[in-house]
């Protein structure tokens, strides 16, 4: 500090550019802290700014990532050729197994259909999909999120579920005109209402910024076994029910841990599920009772 003070007369003689060079760090640090505090207090303005930035950078990122993607595609195809024989054997075996599953699925489908007709079940709303390539890994070390080049113009809505081939990977948290941001299920702030497929036990699946997710709010003695599939419950109306997420991999004293079905660390293409959602749950606006009576 003292060296700066001694240079003061020199500073005054220098052009404005040099003065701003030396004086601003402290002010800027304060400004950054203020911005952070403002963002913590009210996320909406930043969200709007981000959505605008997202729409602007989306096409640029898509264009820039094209050569990188081509390189990775090439790399993948090389390794694929090498493993072709082993892959073929694996697929043949899997095909035999799946044939059996296919038979039983057909039988169950017919059975299900007849039960539905017997009980007069109201059908779940049909799901529609938009497939998109991941254009940016927006999170990094502390946040797990990605950017997609689809937005409002593709009928993507805030809260939509995002799937990769095998299971749920996240939820749309911000939507721009032509881009959207997805919070991944492994993020520390991700909480998803789930049920265990075999016992129908309800729980909350919490991200921990790690590879595995933790099941929380489990009823005591819920008889968890390794290998049980975890699916969305649809509670809260945000996500459609019955989307697979992961399987239980450990049930130790440190809690029940779930491994995601998709390879969340290297997502390339994902599908945004545009389900019909209860809009009142999203907006928080409840229809006044007087209107309900009509």
């Amino acid at each position: 500090m003292s060296s700066q003070n001694s240079q003061k007369p020199v500073l005054q003689a220098l052009p404005l550019k040099t003065v701003t060079l030396r004086l601003t760090p402290a002010v800027l640090v304060l400004l950054a802290v203020t911005l952070m505090a403002l963002h913590r207090a009210d996320t909406l303005p930043v969200e709007r700014l981000r959505t605008a930035a997202m729409d602007m950078t989306g096409p640029v990122l898509t264009a820039v990532s094209a050569p990188f993607n081509a390189f990775f595609d090439q790399l993948e195809s090389v390794t694929t050729i090498r493993d072709l024989k082993a892959e073929n054997i694996r697929l043949t075996e899997e095909n035999v197994r799946l044939q059996k599953w296919y038979e039983s699925a057909l039988k169950l489908q017919a059975e299900n259909q007849s039960f539905r007709e017997l009980l007069n079940v109201k059908a779940d709303p049909a799901l529609t999909f938009v497939t998109a390539r991941v254009i940016s890994d927006a999170g990094g070390t502390f946040v797990k999120s990605v950017l997609l080049p689809v937005g409002i113009q593709d009928k993507v809505q805030k809260g939509n579920a995002v799937m990769s081939g095998h299971g749920l990977v996240g939820r749309v948290t911000e939507v721009g005109q032509s881009s959207s941001r997805v919070l991944l299920v492994t993020d520390l702030n991700s909480r998803i209402p789930v049920i265990l497929q075999n016992t129908r036990t309800k729980a909350i699946l919490a991200g921990k910024n790690q590879e595995l997710m933790k099941l929380e709010r489990l009823p005591p003695d819920s008889g968890m076994t390794v290998g049980t599939r975890v699916i969305t419950s649809g509670d809260g109306g945000q996500l459609p029910p019955d989307l697979p997420i992961g399987t239980i991999v450990s049930t130790g004293a440190d809690g029940v841990w779930v491994k995601p079905l998709s390879d969340i660390d290297r997502l390339t293409r994902v599908q945004v599920v545009n389900a019909e959602m209860d809009q009142t749950l999203l907006t928080g606006e409840i229809t006044p009772p007087s209107e309900n009576k009509k």
């Binding site: 802290v33 963002h39 913590r40 940016s136 927006a138 946040v143």
Partner: peptide, 13 residues
Amino acid sequence: DLLSDYTFGMNAL
């Protein structure tokens, strides 16, 4: 900060 999901101002800080 705009590109990432970090609290706005963190990378700047």
